[in-house]
């Protein structure tokens, strides 16, 4: 399990800071998205979050075909395709950003920026009055925020030190000793459970789920507030067997709340922009009744279930 602690925790890789985030915990929040993830979920709606280091995103719909990017590319990574279209050789691209500056139509951006703890905390601090008025705060998400544990720890300390409610949105695939230290500065955990079956989990995300489920138990054991979040995918993890297993697991641990995040295809375009194949093409969108029936099944376990 690779984990990174760049710059001794004083800075780290961030790919987005979203203010007025209202679906990542209570109230109005600022969500800090950290780059890098140990999982490779097929449906990931933030594919640009998976790799730790910066990547070039290319928006073909914005491109006017002026070819300025071709002229300036230092690594020969931007090329002309057989039909005269712009092609990016991802192996050669170093995400240096020269083409971004040259592009006049905002068709290129670099995802991922090395940012200092103080810098991130000062952005979070900007909306402090909104947090106070809405019982909101800051959420760390990703990627997988614990993938940069030293950086995350400093961010959490910084934000809690300012008095902000902190929320950790995690896939849970982290050594307990690392997670335990981080959790000291976390007020609420949003914990993703993708599948109850270890084999299926591995196939879908690239990793086994045992460590993840163990971590849920540990978090509950230490009395930390937790909400289980389930990205619900048709035909992938919405079978009655899996939902029942999920219901049993959470209710046995006396967990009260579970959020369902029905699958959406909003991230699909991002794969193209990254030049990565999307592995989940065939999955249809959910019907409202289908999500409701999963919800009903889970409520039967005494869980409070929200559809986010």
């Amino acid at each position: 399990m690779e984990q990174v602690s760049g710059q001794g925790g004083k800075s780290g890789w961030v790919f987005n800071i979203q203010r007025y985030s209202i679906q990542d915990g209570p109230g109005i929040r600022t969500t800090v998205f950290l780059k890098g993830c140990p999982l490779t979920c097929h449906w990931c709606s933030n594919p640009e979050s998976q790799a730790l280091h910066p990547e070039l995103l290319y928006f073909d719909t914005q491109c006017t075909g002026c070819r300025k990017c071709l002229e300036v590319c230092l690594n020969g990574a931007t090329l002309l395709g057989s039909d005269g279209e712009i092609v990016i050789d991802r192996k050669l691209c170093k995400a240096c950003g020269v083409c971004v500056d040259a592009c006049l139509s905002d068709a290129r951006i670099i995802s991922g920026e090395l940012r200092a703890v103080d810098d991130v905390v000062s952005v979070v601090e900007k909306d402090s009055l909104f947090y106070r008025n809405s019982n909101g705060g800051v959420t760390f998400s990703g990627g997988e925020p614990t993938y940069q544990p030293a950086f995350l720890l400093e961010l959490l300390k910084g934000c809690q030190g300012k008095g902000f409610h902190t929320c950790l949105d995690t896939c849970g695939y982290t050594q307990w000793s690392v997670l335990e230290e981080i959790l000291e500065y976390v007020d609420l955990v949003l914990f993703d459970v993708k599948h109850m079956d270890p084999e299926r989990h591995k196939k879908l995300t690239g990793v086994d789920n045992r460590l993840i489920l163990d971590n849920v138990k540990q978090i509950v054991g230490m009395g930390k507030k937790i909400i289980i979040r389930v990205p619900l995918l048709p035909g992938v993890n919405d079978s009655e067997g899996n939902i029942n297993a999920l219901g049993n697991f959470t209710s046995n641990l006396s967990i009260k709340r579970l959020d369902l995040l029905p699958y959406h295809r909003l991230g699909v375009k991002k794969y193209e922009r990254l030049g990565v194949d999307y592995k989940l093409e065939e999955v249809p969108s959910f019907k409202k009744e289908e999500v409701e029936s999963v919800k009903k099944l889970l409520t039967g376990f005494g869980l409070e279930v929200d559809i986010v």
Binding site: Y20, I22, G27, L129, F130, S134
Partner: peptide, 15 residues
């Protein structure tokens, strides 16, 4: 919940 978050936004703006 969406309505209430808008109200928090309004309140903060006024504050």
């Amino acid at each position: 919940d969406g309505c209430k978050k808008l109200l928090s936004l309004i309140k903060t703006y006024m504050d």
